[in-house]
Nucleic acid binder design. Structure first.
Lengths: 149, 149
DNA sequence: AAAATATGTTAGGCTTCCCTAACATATTTA
DNA sequence: TAAATATGTTAGGGAAGCCTAACATATTTT
């Protein structure tokens, strides 16, 4: 089964990895709080992750990863980190905004684009220039509505 | 009403703009074909766009933009173009993949990150270097699962 | 240990966005 | 112009992912 994980599933995995922090027991309540959803929704979602062989859980017990689940969670986390770093270091986006963008982009971006970011970051010789006038670019961005293609 | 447009709505606007190409009549059938959905789904979606004041349409007639709809469509298109150009020119992603990524990222990325891309592209002095070894980066990307944070 | 609180589950419902099937209208072709 | 085809609509349904309300179990506090 080559199940492609949905954005929702990836978010759950990411939060579980975050909360486990190596070894801590991960509870439904904590997952729900982290994702700003109800416990009922978390329970239901975790049932799906169990069906997909990504996590394990006994009734009323904590959530733990399977090998597959931990691998997937780590991939998502890594992708998130690359995007966040690229946005902050190369495009000089504020950390908070970069992190939110990464949260969403991580679910849809191609491996090739991620690879491009990695290669760019590793190259290292992008100068951190203050002539990236973001404020100006932002203001002008959608003001010239008439330009072509 | 400060309606935030959903990704789906933005996709419809983008396709309608594409199909209209200035002045051509845009038909439900063409929208459905472009988005790979059924005509029934297109009809239903267009009804929603009408409710939101983004397009106009009479029974059995063609779809046309309102001012608001055309403005929104143009914004989405512009965002798409910026992302695609950034991915191809700066990160050297293949055009086809860059275009697909742009299709998805355009719905979730912040104005600040877009502004960062614009500023970067306008700066123009990113060298188009062949030491962005994408293939290598791609292979290595998810292979070192044990590294921290 | 009984009561209070925290945690987890179940059932039923809602919205979005897609679907199929059946039907209605418009246009083209013979 | 009648038949065939293309186009558009309507009705009903389904999966995903959330919700509330009610209930069940576990844990903590008194």
């Amino acid at each position: 089964m080559v199940t492609t994980l949905t954005p929702s599933t990836q978010d759950y995995l990411e939060v579980i990895l975050q909360l486990s922090n190596g070894d801590r027991a991960v509870r439904i309540t904590d997952i729900a709080k982290s994702l700003n959803i109800t416990k009922a929704s978390a329970t239901q979602a975790i049932d799906i992750l169990i069906d997909e062989g990504l996590v394990l859980k006994e009734k009323y017990g904590p959530v733990t990863f399977t090998g597959k689940g931990e691998l997937e969670a780590t991939k998502v986390k890594k992708t998130h980190k690359i995007i966040r770093e690229f946005l902050t270091k190369v495009l000089q986006v504020d950390l908070e905004i970069a992190d939110k963008d990464a949260c969403l982009i991580e679910h849809v971006i191609s491996p090739q684009s991620i690879a491009g970011m990695v290669a760019f970051l590793e190259k290292g010789n992008y100068e951190i220039s203050d002539d990236l006038n973001l404020q100006k670019a932002l203001v002008l961005l959608y003001s010239d509505q008439e330009d072509k293609q």
